[in-house]
Design a protein around this nucleic acid. Structure first.
Lengths: 188, 188
DNA sequence: CCACATCTTGAACGATCGTTCCAGTACATT
DNA sequence: AATGTACTGGAACGATCGTTCAAGATGTGG
């Protein structure tokens, strides 16, 4: 029927992710996106509607990738507590690059319903994965029995954010690792 | 010599703080600032140079107020550990309003030297106050002796940021209090 | 091979951005 | 009172913002 798209949407979204990670939503211009994504301006608006549409697609893609990576690392070791440690270690290792989840939360709070819904979806998946790891770790005797699992999951996820925020503020890997050590101390 | 200023600089800066807390730097327009600060555009540029000058003044003012409040609460109880708890409780109580320190860190990272210097100054003061409280708490037997004080201070300050970030993402007071409980569990 | 749908590119839109120029006014000093 | 400085409010600047229009190029289905 018609001429097929010449660019790959996934590749373009991935490029948009990098732009938004570096500059946030307000700080990223349409021109930056066009340049980085390697597509024409018109193609961008035809495909995503507007700049906000590109942002939503980027945040969704980033969140899904991030949650999947967290979940994989959580279950990568025999002892669940070591899976949790592995998840944190990778956060520390990659903390020099800005997190799109953190920046979108700070930039928009709960003001944009479609963004909130996106956060809730990926957030729920992540909470589920973390709680599963915590339950297993408790069975394996690595976590105190009197702790509330919901609060603990929220605490671990909040710790991920705090690591990334500290890194954004200039903290080095050693300092970030110390944060991990102290957070995990709360578990037992 | 000359006609004196009709507006109060402190009042104007305080109004700018509110605008930047609500919208960030990029999201706040010069018009918003003029309206909220209640001064003419020309007076704004004469007094602060440009929009960035207003932002620096606002961040400095906010940071100083914040550090002073933290320090006062830290020393407000006989037991230092209870002073730490009081500091956290107040952070939880006021977490519904955005933190200018968090948003400026996320928005600019370490990219603006003058902003970094501002952060380092108020950050050093805060670290000193927290470490003093921690040292006292250890003397009073409320903190494990084997913990590194520098890391511990960084951990507590990172926890403040993570509470504010969680609140920005929609977490309620109960969830935030649970974060405080778990963070303080790491101390003993 | 023709016709059409969608591509790509580049110019152009109105709106808003941060900032500055311009008068006119009010206060403190000589 | 006269002088001069720095206030005030408003109009206007060029630049950039997100977005759209217009035209030519390209590949697919009838």
């Amino acid at each position: 029927m018609a001429r097929p798209r010449e660019f790959d949407i996934d590749t373009a979204v991935q490029a948009a992710v990098e732009v938004f990670r570096a500059h946030g939503f307000e700080g990223a211009s349409a021109q930056m996106l066009v340049d980085a994504m390697g597509i024409g301006r018109q193609s961008l608006y035809d495909t995503f509607g507007d700049k906000w549409g590109v942002y939503l697609a980027a945040v969704k893609r980033y969140s899904q990738d991030e949650v999947r990576t967290h979940a994989e690392l959580l279950t990568s070791r025999d002892r669940a507590i070591e899976g949790i440690r592995a998840m944190f270690d990778r956060v520390v290792a990659e903390a020099d690059r800005a997190c799109l989840g953190v920046s979108s939360t700070v930039e928009f709070g709960c003001g944009r319903p479609d963004l909130v819904k996106l956060r809730e979806e990926s957030g729920a998946t992540l909470v589920r994965a973390v709680k599963a790891a915590l339950a297993l770790a408790r069975e394996q005797g690595d976590i105190a029995a009197d702790l509330d699992m919901d609060s603990l999951a929220a605490f671990l996820i909040a710790t991920i954010a705090s690591i990334r925020l500290a890194a954004r503020g200039g903290a080095g890997p050693a300092q970030l690792s110390a944060l991990v050590d102290l957070a995990m101390r709360a578990l037992r």
